[in-house]
C-alpha cells in the first residue's frame, strides 16, 4: 500500500516535470532553467498530490495549492541564484502545471450553457457550475501566487539579487 502511494507520488512529480518543461518553453524560458523548473514543478505538484490525497491529508485544492506554491517559492528562491535568473523565471513555469485551466474554461462553458438553456432548473444548475468553477479557479490562482510570492519577499536578500 505505502509503496503504491510512493509510486503514485513519483509518477505525479515526473509528469508535472515534463509538463513544466513544455509549458515553460512556450514562455521562452532560458534552457539552463529547464532542469530547475522541472525539479521545482515536480516537488510542488507532488506536495499538492500528497496534501490532497484522501488517505493522507485530504486537504481542499485551494489550501493544498497554496501550500505547494510555498514549497515552489522556497525552492525557486534558493535555486534561482545557481542559474543566474530572477526567482520568477524558475517559479512561474513551475507553477504552470498547477494552474486551474480546466476550472477556467469550465467557468466559461457554464456561462455559455446558461445562455443556451432557458429552463429555470437547467439555468440554475449551470449558474451554480459557473460560480463554483469560477470561485475555485480564482481562489486557487490567488492562493498559488500568494504562496509562491511569500518566500520571495521573506527571502528578499536572496531573491532580489539572483541575477547579480
Amino acid at each position: 500500500m505505502s509503496s503504491e502511494i510512493f509510486v503514485n507520488i513519483f509518477e505525479d512529480g515526473l509528469f508535472a516535470a515534463i509538463a513544466a518543461i513544455g509549458f515553460s518553453s512556450i514562455s521562452n524560458t532560458p534552457r539552463r532553467a529547464y532542469a530547475v523548473c522541472a525539479v521545482i514543478a515536480a516537488v510542488g505538484h507532488a506536495v499538492r498530490y500528497v496534501l490532497m490525497a484522501p488517505d493522507i491529508a485530504g486537504m481542499h485544492i485551494v489550501m493544498a495549492s497554496t501550500a505547494a506554491a510555498m514549497a515552489v517559492g522556497v525552492l525557486g528562491v534558493l535555486l534561482a541564484p545557481l542559474i543566474k535568473c530572477p526567482a520568477e523565471v524558475c517559479l512561474f513555469p513551475a507553477l504552470l502545471p498547477m494552474i486551474p485551466g480546466m476550472y477556467a474554461y469550465r467557468t466559461v462553458q457554464a456561462l455559455i450553457s446558461c445562455m443556451l438553456h432557458t429552463g429555470e432548473a437547467a439555468f440554475d444548475r449551470y449558474l451554480s457550475l459557473f460560480a463554483q468553477n469560477g470561485l475555485t479557479c480564482t481562489f486557487i490562482m490567488l492562493g498559488m501566487v500568494l504562496g509562491a510570492n511569500i518566500p520571495v519577499f521573506a527571502l528578499k536578500k536572496i531573491s532580489f539579487q539572483a541575477t547579480r
Partner: peptide, 23 residues
C-alpha cells in the same frame, strides 16, 4: 532569438500529454 519553433513543438506535445496523465 526566441526558443526555436520545432523545439517548442517537440516539448509542448509531451507536456500536454503529461498534463492529461495528471488528470
Amino acid at each position: 532569438r526566441p526558443t526555436g519553433q520545432w523545439e517548442v513543438l517537440l516539448l509542448v506535445g509531451p507536456a500536454n500529454a503529461a498534463f492529461c496523465r495528471l488528470f
